[in-house]
């Protein structure tokens, strides 16, 4: 049954790319150089965004289920650190997705959608690096949301609202350069930009070479800040667990 789900995931990603590209084609019918960006670039952006999304999937209710079932107490006693366990679990399943979902989808999309190659080889390498950082930003952000399960019984609402914000603000569905200026300025102050938009912009050569360093430093900075916040929450959660006896 699992295998069917992976297979369905491949189809899903392809269809999403296909349909979103169709919408963008319709948009470009009236103006073939919208805001100085060519249709081809937008098409590649959309495809990359959905391809990345199919790996940036994390187990949002893993910690919640541990907390509600009370298994967390016994997990904490195990010699391996619980946080390392959760992290490796998610990374492991993402790596698995790279093999099972991303590779087939990528091969098919290259043929189907005529994706642009990276702007340059160098940008290609930097894209890969930046995408890994984007994954970590999302992971740290998610971890903070997951931690809330120590205080709230159900985290469905928070997780869903988080997902919604990530979808709109991180450039997963729409290239951020099409956003109104005020909103774009605001997004630049948040970690969302670092998740999908920064890596894809680097791939497309939309970030001037001089600014790439800043963009990547910004990603790292967000990882540090979010990880720190997650760490503090984790300590508070452990404290709470001890007080209540699990």
């Amino acid at each position: 049954m699992y295998r069917v789900d992976y297979f369905a995931g491949v189809i899903n990603t392809l269809v999403m790319i296909f349909v979103n590209i169709a919408i963008w084609k319709a948009i470009y019918e009236a103006d073939d150089n919208l805001g100085g960006v060519q249709l081809k670039v937008v098409m590649t952006y959309i495809a990359l965004a959905f391809l990345m999304q199919c790996i940036f999937v994390m187990e949002d209710y893993f910690i919640e289920s541990k907390v509600t079932s009370g298994l967390i107490s016994s997990d904490l006693l195990k010699p391996i650190s619980f946080r390392a366990y959760v992290f490796s679990y998610n990374v492991g399943s993402s790596v698995f997705r790279v093999l099972m979902q991303l590779l087939p989808t990528l091969v098919i999309s290259i043929f189907l959608f005529k994706l642009l190659p990276p702007f340059s080889t160098e940008m290609g390498i930097l894209f890969f690096f930046s995408a890994v950082l984007g994954y970590l930003v999302l992971y740290c952000l998610n971890f903070i949301v997951w931690m809330s399960s120590f205080w709230f019984y159900y985290t469905f609402s928070l997780v869903t609202i988080k997902d919604a914000l990530v979808m709109v603000l991180s450039g997963a569905l729409i290239p951020l350069w099409f956003l109104p200026q005020w909103l774009f300025n605001f997004v630049k102050l948040t970690p969302f930009e670092s998740i999908f938009f920064t890596p894809i912009s680097i791939y497309l050569g939309q970030v001037p070479a001089a600014d790439i360093k800043t963009a990547i430093i910004k990603q790292v900075a967000w990882i540090v800040v979010l990880a720190l916040a997650g760490h503090l929450l984790w300590n508070a959660a452990k404290h709470k667990l001890v007080l209540q006896g699990g």
Partner: peptide
């Protein structure tokens, strides 16, 4: 509230595109 926000995502994207084009 979460269901509402989740469903508003596609509306928001549509809104953002159409304020532009």
């Amino acid at each position: 509230l979460a269901v509402f926000v989740r469903e508003m995502v596609s509306i928001a994207v549509m809104y953002l595109i159409l304020t532009r084009v």
